[in-house]
Design a protein around this nucleic acid. Sequence first.
DNA 1: CTTGACCTTCTAGTGACTGGAAGCCACATA
DNA 2: TATGTGGCTTCCAGTCACTAGAAGGTCAAG
Lengths: 129, 129
Amino acid sequence: MNIGEAAERSGLPTKTIRYYEDIGLVVADRRDNGYRDYSDVHIHKLSFLRRARSLGFSIPECRLLLSLYEDTDRSSGDVKALALSKVAEIDQKISELAGLRKTLKTLSDKCHGDDRPDCPILDDLSKVN
Amino acid sequence: MNIGEAAERSGLPTKTIRYYEDIGLVVADRRDNGYRDYSDVHIHKLSFLRRARSLGFSIPECRLLLSLYEDTDRSSGDVKALALSKVAEIDQKISELAGLRKTLKTLSDKCHGDDRPDCPILDDLSKVN
DNA sequence: CTTGACCTTCTAGTGACTGGAAGCCACATA
DNA sequence: TATGTGGCTTCCAGTCACTAGAAGGTCAAG
């Protein structure tokens, strides 16, 4: 499929998809006319990148994550270790989000329309550190 | 306290703290000698920024979140609506992280040392879209 | 009173996009 | 067959969020 449809299905702008090709993250096939050609696997990788990037993973981290999928040279012990360390990172992110959520929920519950408390937003928000 | 200690306590580099002051996110007080002076409230805000940024919130979003704390002009109805919409965003992020976690866990479970499956990482990873 | 750590501002560079120009390609309609 | 119209190509320039480095001021310790 063309880059336009790939953009639609992955949720990334075409510009970003071309950029990811430039830096070697997801390289499309080419048709005779020079157009990029995307398969379902490409779409999966692009969607993955969109999600991982929006969750705060850096490009190098995403590259690592993708390499879990692609790199057949890597020993399976390494893959396991890498995946597990990322799982731990994700758990950390989830608990930070939970803390943030709790604070915002508290804030909104206290703001039931008329008066505003001397806002708790930062009180416990940044203590978890 | 000086910017160095602020950096240590917030987990942000001094360069970043100065940058956040440049763009008006967290403006420190100044001592007579021109040094920036940080209070606990400043540290809370900076820690908050570090966490929110690492979780994929943009600078404008962080500014909005901080304004929930600062803006005494805003009506409490607005605060409530804003906070609740952010809570929904956070729930979305959490569920995406949970999906990512599940996939990586599956991958690492299958990689029990010797052989590697034809990797599942992208199979369900990007379907949730 | 000097040394070294820490602070200041300023300018410039980087990473990850993002927008725009100039031109090629494909397909529908006159 | 000509002609849009829209999507594709590359390339260059700009932006956002830092990040590194230079040049110089401040301060506590020896």
